[in-house]
Amino acid sequence: MTLFRLAGDLSHVLAILLLLYKIWTTKSAAGISGKTQLMFCMVYVTRYLDLFTSFISVYNSTMKVLFISASVATVYLIYFKFKATYDGNHDTFRMEFVIVPALILALIWNYAFTFFEISWAFSIFLEAVAILPQLFMVTKTGEAENITSHYLFALGSYRALYILNWIDRYYFEGHWDPIAVTAGIVQTVLYGDFFYLYFTRVIKGRKLQVLP
């Protein structure tokens, strides 16, 4: 495992825990897109179907269980426990606009036409765009709380670090996963605007506000 990947995974875990911490301590899901979280939950479940069929390492299995359980917990907090605080009226992105294309693409582009491989490819494609409802919500409300901004930054950094990991693996191991790399680049590019705002505003101690 490359250092980039370890840093990426830790950034991913940090993002998920930051979000849970924010919702739990403020007892509020305000400003958080339930749709994005619901799609991330679908991403983890469809990707980690191999949890019981192919063992890679204790690290891998532990992370998979952590991602699935933290994601289910997040969805539960948003849609059940703190449902009253969830801004459903600002969370207007249509999920089918990304779920259907991700499924169609997975049926066309996969490593084998089997249930597991199509499910894996679907999960990779859906992950690339699952953040759209959240970014759409930030744009629509015009701002994001600081912890939400830190969450988005950690989540965006995760796939950016994976890109460095893929470059490293390509050079040193000859390993090359075109589906993950393509989707990972799209995923990172989607955070471009946000990264810019994060560095120019949040790091300077201001709240993230999207100007017209």
């Binding site: 891998n60 991602f67 084998a112 894996w120």
Partner: peptide
Amino acid sequence: EGGNEGHDEL
């Protein structure tokens, strides 16, 4: 080719 030797990344 590539990518099909089991998905070892998360």
